[in-house]
């Protein structure tokens, strides 16, 4: 897709988004490490929570940055003036956000694994990350489009984003706890489908309502 190609090219040129989000994610990790005093005994209980708090905050930052970039020179306006269906525009933006977030997470994850001493190589963990990040990017793309047009947009995105995304955070934390702890997969049968259902539902709804968001 052209949109994705353009965004990736832009990012390769400026490198501002991924780098700043990465640094931000690392900061969250370090701060939490001191705030919660992670000891080896408690790693399994605490690390997934920190991981997902970092990912969720990084996601809001990435999304809002992505839309600011579209607005700076009226790129979004140009996009809306082209004969491309709004669904395709939404899915394109969501896909780009998904790719960027996955990139950031793929770098952050090993760093977290080293910092907190757990094993990152687990297919369940990676599956969880992909499913949850898809949910993040769907809801986040929609809400950042809304927030970008309102006053006090810095606050609007998190205010809209976090309550709605809560089930994804819960699901992701629970699934990661199991993946990291290396426990039995009991309970996974519940959380991964929950994430999948969330993604499927919003994959249908978000493109539809997006056309109303960019109408004017």
């Amino acid at each position: 897709m052209v949109l994705v190609w353009k965004d990736i090219l832009l990012e390769v040129r400026s490198r501002e988004l991924v780098i700043s989000v990465l640094v931000f994610g690392l900061l969250v990790a370090v701060v939490f490490n001191f705030a919660l005093d992670v000891t080896p005994q408690r790693v399994t209980a605490i690390a997934p929570g920190i991981l997902w708090v970092a990912f969720a905050f990084a996601a809001t930052m990435a999304m809002s940055r992505a839309f600011v970039r579209e607005r700076e020179q009226g790129g979004l306006e140009g996009l809306l003036l082209s004969p491309v269906s709004r669904d395709a525009i939404f899915l394109g933006k969501a896909l780009t956000n998904l790719l960027f977030m996955l990139l950031v997470e793929m770098v952050l994850l090993p760093v977290f694994a080293v910092l907190f001493g757990f094993s990152a190589m687990s297919f369940t963990l990676i599956g969880t990350i992909v499913l949850a990040t898809l949910g993040f990017s769907l809801v986040g793309t929609l809400f950042s489009a809304i927030a970008a047009q309102t006053r006090s947009r810095e606050i609007m995105l998190p205010v809209l984003f976090f309550p709605v995304i809560l089930p994804v955070i819960i699901g992701a934390v629970e699934a990661s706890t199991r993946a990291i702890g290396g426990e039995t997969t009991v309970g996974l049968g519940r959380w991964l489908p929950l994430l999948a259902v969330f993604d499927a539902l919003f994959l249908v709804i978000c493109p539809w309502v997006f056309s109303f968001v960019v109408e004017e």
């Binding site: 809801v139 929609l142 047009q149 809560l166 969330f198 309502v209 968001v213 004017e216």
Partner: peptide, 29 residues
């Protein structure tokens, strides 16, 4: 916070729909 009432009506309608659809998922999770 919308720029004008028409926009506010559309945006909040979107939030009203997305938010309500989310409620059962929140509940079960």
């Amino acid at each position: 916070y919308a720029a004008n009432p028409n926009q506010g009506a559309r945006y909040s309608a979107v939030v009203g729909i997305v938010g309500f659809v989310d409620v059962p998922i929140v509940y079960y999770s």
